[in-house]
Simulated assay, not measured.
Amino acid sequence: MTVPQQAARPTREQLAAWRNFLRAHARITRSLEAELVAEQRLSLGSYDVLLQLAEAPRRRLRMAELADAVLLSRSGVTRLVDRLERAGLVARERVAGDGRGVVAALTERGLDTLRTASHTHLAGIVRHFVAHLDAAELAEIGRICGDLADQPE
Rank of each mutant, 00 (worst) to 15 (best):
C145H: 10
E55S: 11
E140S: 11
A87N: 11
L15S: 09
L106A: 05
G97K: 04
A34K: 08
E153R: 13
V103H: 04
P152E: 10
W18C: 10
V126C: 08
E65R: 11
G45S: 12
G146W: 08
T78N: 05
A26P: 02
L32K: 09
L80H: 03
A139F: 05
V77Y: 00
E93F: 02
G45E: 15
R100A: 04
V130F: 02
T107E: 09
G88A: 10
S31H: 15
G124W: 10
G97Q: 01
P4F: 09
I28E: 02
L22H: 08
H119V: 11
T11Q: 04
R19E: 14
G101M: 07
G124S: 12
G142C: 00
A139N: 07
T116P: 07
S118E: 13
D147N: 10
L72W: 01
Q52F: 00
D82W: 02
R115S: 12
L80R: 07
E108Y: 00
D150F: 13
R19V: 14
Q40R: 14
R74P: 06
Q52A: 14
D150W: 13
L51D: 14
R94L: 01
L80M: 11
A7G: 11
S43F: 05
E35F: 04
L44N: 03
R83Q: 05
A38I: 03
D68I: 05
A135P: 01
L15N: 09
V102E: 02
Q5I: 15
T2Q: 14
R59N: 12
L22R: 13
T29A: 00
L133M: 12
E33T: 06
V77L: 02
M1N: 04
E39M: 12
A91I: 04
V3P: 06
